[in-house]
Computed example of a mutant assay.
Amino acid sequence: MGNLSLWCPSFSVRNARVDEQHIELMAMSDELLAWLGRSRVPDHDLAHLLQEIASLNASHTRLEAELLARNQCPTLAQHQRLAAQGAAALQAWVAEARGGQLDRPALAVFLGAWMVNHLIETDLPVRDYLHE
């Protein structure tokens, strides 16, 4: 159902911890996309992996917010708002999967856009504020 393995050096925010989390989130999303393409994988198994992605994303969001606040990023509030929207969307997908009503094609579209948008539109513009 697709593949997000697009990591390249131009995506780096020049912070090894943040980059590592981005890479891990992309790898987990790739795994989920592969699972979505298999009709025999039950929704509750997908819910488990979605929850793992949501948990890592929550840690990632906290790290970014801490760095942006410490470095006085002028767009911190906007960054936090976008992160909250992404987190809410992930939790909605978890709930849908737990309820056995997962729209697999729509989730694949979401995953394909979510990480790329996060990297390109949200994090790269503020990478000068993501240093330790």
Rank of each mutant, 00 (worst) to 15 (best):
L36F: 10
R104M: 06
N57T: 05
I23D: 10
E24H: 08
T75G: 13
N15Y: 11
G112F: 06
A89R: 10
P42K: 02
S29P: 09
D128Y: 07
G112H: 05
S5H: 15
E96C: 05
V18K: 01
A27P: 14
Q85E: 14
N71I: 02
A58L: 08
S39Q: 09
T61C: 07
V109G: 07
G37S: 10
D30W: 07
G37E: 13
G37H: 03
S39Y: 06
D128F: 10
A83L: 07
R17K: 14
D43Y: 02
L50Y: 06
N57C: 14
M1Y: 14
Q101F: 07
Q72W: 12
L111Q: 01
A84I: 12
H60K: 09
V109S: 14
L56A: 14
W114I: 01
H79R: 02
D128A: 15
Q72I: 13
G99D: 06
L130C: 01
E132M: 09
A113L: 07
L107Q: 00
D103R: 01
A97L: 02
T61H: 08
V18P: 00
R17T: 14
S10W: 15
A54R: 10
P105V: 00
L36R: 00
E31P: 06
A54K: 10
L124D: 12
Q80P: 03
A89E: 15
A65G: 01
N117G: 04
L50N: 00
E132W: 08
L111M: 13
N3Q: 14
R70V: 05
A84K: 11
V116D: 06
D123F: 09
L4V: 02
G99A: 04
D123P: 03
F11K: 00
D103P: 02
A97H: 03
P125V: 03
L63R: 07
A113I: 12
L46S: 00
L107P: 00
E31W: 04
L119C: 12
N15V: 02
L25P: 04
A69R: 01
N117P: 04
A65E: 00
N71Q: 08
A69G: 04
E24T: 15
P74D: 14
Q78T: 06
I53R: 02
P9F: 15
A84L: 10
C73E: 14
L119N: 01
Q91N: 10
L50W: 03
M115V: 02
L49T: 05
L25A: 08
L36D: 03
D123T: 11
R14E: 12
E96T: 08
V18H: 02
L4T: 04
A27N: 13
C73W: 15
C73N: 13
D123I: 08
R17F: 13
A83K: 01
A89F: 07
I53V: 06
C8L: 13
N3L: 09
R62G: 10
L119T: 08
L111H: 00
L6Y: 15
E20L: 06
V109M: 13
P74S: 14
I23E: 15
L67N: 01
R98M: 05
L111S: 02
W35T: 01
E121D: 14
G37D: 11
T122W: 07
D45A: 09
E31C: 02
H131R: 11
H131F: 13
S5N: 15
L82K: 00
D19K: 03
Q51C: 08
A27S: 11
V116K: 11
L107S: 00
D30E: 10
P125Q: 09
H60C: 03
W93D: 01
Y129W: 13
Q85S: 09
H22D: 06
